[in-house]
Every structure is written in structure tokens, then in C-alpha cells.
């Protein structure tokens, strides 16, 4: 019962972060801020959603599989964002404030 409540809270907060990520993807002014919105909320939303799902299992093989998927997504999703931002930079996409570009490319 307690686990289910915690799971519900985690799932709702995770869904909220996923929604803000989608909102930021549409509303932010330039490419790099959009990637940022998508990637940061992506990782936190993934963690919260998967924790919420794990709490709903019987802590058996399904939970282990969910942990595997979580680790895989946490490895690949930021890498994809990094590759996206880096190749955009490589392709000459300018940031909103050009003076800040050094901070943005190494993320």
C-alpha cells in the first residue's frame, strides 16, 4: 500500500517532468536550449518513471530487467543528446548568446 502510493507519486512526478521536457522542446528559443530541455528532463523523468515501475513489481526478474533498461537508457540518452549538440555545433549552428558557447558544448 505504502509502496503503491510512493510509486504513484514517482510516476506522476516523472510524467510531469516528461511533459515539461516536451513543453520546453517547443517553447525554448534555439537549438541548444531545446536539446537541454529534452535531455535533462529526459534523464530525470526516466529515473522517476522506472523507480515507480520497479516499486510496482514483486522485486523479481521483471524488476531486474527494468533496472537493466534504466541503466541502458541512462547511458545512451545523454550520449545521444551530447552527439546531437556536438554535431550541431560542428555543423555551425549558433547558440543564442554566442559568448556562452563554451559552456554549452562540453555538456
Amino acid at each position: 500500500m505504502i509502496l503503491e502510493t510512493i510509486s504513484n507519486i514517482l510516476l506522476i512526478v516523472g510524467a510531469f517532468f516528461a511533459l515539461t521536457g516536451a513543453y520546453g522542446l517547443f517553447k525554448f528559443p534555439d537549438f541548444f536550449t531545446r536539446v537541454h530541455a529534452a535531455s535533462v528532463t529526459d534523464s530525470i523523468a526516466t529515473i522517476l518513471l522506472f523507480l515507480g515501475l520497479i516499486l510496482r513489481t514483486d522485486f523479481d526478474l521483471v524488476a531486474v530487467k527494468l533496472v537493466f533498461v534504466l541503466v541502458f537508457v541512462l547511458l545512451t540518452s545523454p550520449t545521444a543528446s551530447h552527439a546531437l549538440a556536438k554535431s550541431a555545433r560542428h555543423g555551425g549552428v549558433a547558440t543564442l548568446a554566442e559568448s556562452n558557447n563554451k559552456d554549452n558544448t562540453d555538456g
Partner: peptide, 15 residues
């Protein structure tokens, strides 16, 4: 020059 990509690829390709 894509160091991050190389490191992550080396981790996940065996997986």
C-alpha cells in the same frame, strides 16, 4: 574527436 561517443559505444556494444 568524439571521445564520449567512443567510451559509451565501447561500454554498450558488448551488451
Amino acid at each position: 574527436s568524439h571521445l564520449v561517443l567512443k567510451v559509451v559505444a565501447k561500454i554498450i556494444i558488448p551488451l
